[in-house]
Design a protein around this nucleic acid. Structure first.
Length: 511
RNA sequence: GGGCCGUUAGCUCAGCUGGUAGAGCAGCUGACUCUUAAUCAGCGGGUCGGAGGUUCGAAUCCUCCACGGCUCACCA
């Protein structure tokens, strides 16, 4: 009996959600732009997007939003930051100090901009809420007041769920000091519901009164449910770090109910994507792979496919090296054989243009073409690949080129040497004889297959026991390494005079 | 210590609304004068982590255990 999964995980989640109410629904995602937004974070928005698409298909009224938490304070100087510049910004909201390159309005915008551009390429349409705007516009003032009033209830919830006793002076609201610009360490001294202001003192010596409209921020465990209540959010995906017992979802759900008097959203927890072989993805450790960078190397639908095909709670190991090729192949294979259709559909693959050339092969071709895309197309045509859509093909080839530069392991790389490689001096007599014969036997107009056949004939004539030795001779003569792309097609591509001259030179008996 | 996930063929995994196990790759055989993870055809390969339980029947449900991974426990 063959079991075929006809229920995609997103369908199961949608079933659960609809049991709780037909909507309207709002799916909320959110990532703090404290550094490059990486592929691990991408799971959040893709998971949300897939649930969104399924609900939409079922005729449910649903919106998808992304809260860019740019009002979060900078926690520390990350390894990728200049300590002399950023030490002074620790504790300030990410939207309120300059970015590393100087080309963006703020630190947060520097990381947000490429990510939001990536979302478009991934065909994820989100309504973006900027946290600083949510605060500055006064949108969250009602929740800030509720939180300040409910301070003791919140403290009790935190204690009951986490065992943590908050300090007597603790407040759910962190004012931003008007003197030093920091929000870490400030203490609430009082507040006015009428004026919508909060009085504070700061360790820097500063004291004063700030507006509830952008003068500070709710602390994370309160900020999150405040958003749920305000927007309001009915579905929220989050990483498993928040899902632990007593974690921020647990406390958030209680705070949402008891303090903000609103039902908490349906939780969708997801596992993290681990970066295979190179340690985990941690923004704080500087070991990250940005979504933006990944999209230069993997077509968006394939990145989506990787996440969509895997249930959210299962971990995904991501290796951008050789295994990435397997992923691309798996995708192409599934697409051409109609396997896993639901995942492909949800990956957005229906808009995908098949290029008809295995990615693996493209990796070779672009190298033969010396990274010239037009030349790559010429080669493919010569090798009888159906080049139906040259633009689509070039686009794919572009991915291959960038992959080669960024992530390809050395064994799949090669380049044609301008002069006889030193390694060719190690050729033995038989191999040299073979190369010399090959030089004489090459005729204009021979295609790859003909040359390939020729290699076998001449190898035998030259007394080489195995064809392998002949191939090795060719590769050493042109690439300076013992292996390379399919020899016949490879030689057919090279300029003939150059090829013959090189074969002759390499074939000359050693001194 | 708490939480979550996993443990199925050499490897990566699918199969989890219960009916004596599947795919891809690797391996082996054969064909193509054939090497770049070539193509085609075929073959072998698993006490489904362990022990109990429910059932006519369990990889699939329940309980316990073992091992592995991640995560939380300071802050968000």
């Amino acid at each position: 009996m063959v079991h075929v999964r006809d229920r995609h995980w997103a369908e199961e989640i949608a079933d659960e959600i609809l049991k709780q109410g037909r909507g309207p629904h709002e799916i909320s995602t959110g990532i703090s732009p404290s550094g490059e937004i990486h592929i691990g974070n991408l799971r959040e928005v893709i998971t949300a997007d897939v649930v969104y698409r399924v609900l939409k298909e079922r005729g449910v009224e649903v919106t998808l939003d992304y809260v860019a938490d740019n009002f979060d304070p900078l926690r520390k100087v990350y390894p990728f930051l200049d300590a002399s510049v950023y030490t002074g910004h620790i504790g300030k909201p990410l939207s309120e100090f300059p970015c590393p390159c100087g080309g963006h309005p703020s630190y947060a915008a520097h990381f947000l901009e490429p990510f939001l551009a990536s979302l478009e390429r991934l065909r994820i349409k989100v309504k973006v809420h900027f946290a600083d705007q949510m605060y500055k516009s006064g949108l969250l003032v009602p929740q800030i007041i509720q939180a300040l009033r409910g301070r003791d209830a919140i403290a009790r919830i935190l204690h009951e769920c986490t065992g943590r006793h908050v300090e007597p002076e603790w407040s759910p609201f962190n004012p931003i000091c008007g003197t030093c610009g920091r929000m870490t360490g400030t203490l609430v001294a009082g507040f006015s519901e009428r004026d919508k202001t909060v009085d504070y003192t700061c360790p820097c010596g500063g004291r004063g009164t700030v507006s509830m409209r952008g003068g500070g921020k709710l602390t994370w465990r309160v900020d999150w449910p405040a958003r749920w209540a305000r927007l309001p959010v009915t579905i929220e995906p989050f990483g498993k770090d928040h899902a632990t017992r007593g974690g921020s979802y647990d406390t958030g759900a209680l705070i949402c109910r008891e303090v903000f008097k609103a039902p908490p959203p349906f939780p969708v927890t997801y596992e993290w994507i681990s970066f295979k072989g190179k340690g985990e993805l941690k923004k704080s450790k500087g070991n990250i792979l940005s979504v933006h960078r990944m999209l230069e190397v993997v077509p968006p639908e394939i990145l989506r496919y990787m996440i969509v095909k895997t249930r959210p709670m299962r971990s995904i190991g991501f290796d951008p090296g050789l295994p990435l090729l397997a992923l691309v192949d798996e995708f192409d294979d599934a697409a051409s054989r109609g396997r896993d259709p639901r995942a492909l559909q949800l990956a957005g693959a229906d808009q995908f243009t098949p290029v008809g050339v295995p990615f693996r092969h493209l990796v070779n071709v672009v190298q033969m073409a010396d990274f010239d895309l037009d030349q790559a197309v010429v080669i493919l045509k010569r090798n009888n690949y159906p080049v139906a859509d040259a633009a689509a093909l070039k686009e794919r080839a572009g991915y291959a080129i960038r992959w080669l530069r960024e992530f390809a392991p050395p064994e799949v790389k090669f380049s044609v040497e301008r002069t006889l490689p030193a390694a060719a001096s190690g050729l033995d007599g038989g191999q040299r004889a073979f190369l010399a014969r090959l030089a004489s036997a090459l005729r204009p107009g021979m295609n790859g297959e003909a040359i390939h056949a020729l290699v076998y004939d001449l190898a035998k004539e030259a007394g080489l026991e195995k064809a392998t030795a002949a191939f090795e001779a060719i590769y050493l003569a042109f690439l300076g390494q013992p292996k390379g792309p399919r020899a016949g097609w490879f030689l057919a591509f090279l300029e003939r005079d150059f090829t013959i001259a090189r074969l002759r030179e390499a074939g000359r008996a050693a001194a």
